[in-house]
Design a binder for these strands. Sequence first.
DNA 1: TTTAACTTTCAAATATTACTGAAAGTTTAT
DNA 2: ATAAACTTTCAGTAATATTTGAAAGTTAAA
Lengths: 168, 168
Amino acid sequence: MELPEAKEKFIEAWGKLGSEWGINRTMAQVHALLLISPEALTTEEIMITLSISRGNANMTLRELIGWGLVQKQHKAGERKEYFFADKDTWNIARQVAKERRKRELDPVIKILDELSKVEGDTTDPEFMTFTKSVKDINKLAKNVDKTLDTMLKAEENWFWGSIFKIFK
Amino acid sequence: MELPEAKEKFIEAWGKLGSEWGINRTMAQVHALLLISPEALTTEEIMITLSISRGNANMTLRELIGWGLVQKQHKAGERKEYFFADKDTWNIARQVAKERRKRELDPVIKILDELSKVEGDTTDPEFMTFTKSVKDINKLAKNVDKTLDTMLKAEENWFWGSIFKIFK
DNA sequence: TTTAACTTTCAAATATTACTGAAAGTTTAT
DNA sequence: ATAAACTTTCAGTAATATTTGAAAGTTAAA
């Protein structure tokens, strides 16, 4: 397999993986493209390479910046904005975990906390099954939350720090 | 908040979380409904409670069974099939991790392995950035894969076993 | 073997999500 | 102040994913 074909496959695979995990395909593809680019790219270059519109490229790049996965770069004497991706896989994983925790896990925990408070007839199986499940899931969610929090600060923690060195 | 309202909210929240993570909303909702049901339910009951069609209910239930999250139950002297969900959160998490690894992580690792083999000019920054990124991601993916594998067998392993007791 | 209860299938309809592109907005150089 | 270079917005369009429902298929009792 030659490099150009390999690049395409990589972008495609990353896009597919993203879409299976609730990240919009194009966003994942732009990210993939930047991951394998030695130089920062312009909106123009991204548009052309991926055959996407200006609007799409722009929105996607802004979102990637919002996720902390991509940064702008300004070249001296140029008006154009250049974009590049952090290439440290560990940082990428951390960023994604951080954002998704904030956007999705935290709101669910808030609801589960509410639902844990519901009171009812403790002899009613309907009620008992409900509270049991809600409380169990709440507990799991909170443990995941706490663990993520620790992981995200792993560098400061001897225990997780040493576990996650394995991943790097 | 009263129980019926709480149930609705739970089903809604679970459905939303599912869809944010690439699991079809209805599937997550049916799962939620079964999670909070003390008794196994029929297709009919599920259809009515969630206002979904027979076809949808049937497909969704089969998929949930495929994920190992739901099981059929046959009641003596009845033709109807009843469905119930495993309510152990740890099992649920394990099943989901297991399925997604098989369906999504494994195929990506296969592609990354292919792409790691691509050869090229080691003085070409395009090539070098490509292989570096692919190899880094491949390494991370494989570590995640290995860790999941170990986790899924956690019960047999003193180290992870003791870590994951915390989650229960 | 017939029938009725029940389950499964799948083409078409609907709903959801993503994308386009032209126009409006912004910034910087002259 | 003007113009050129560039970025952002968003209404309309397109693509994708999900759902419906009626027909076909299956099973078990009589």
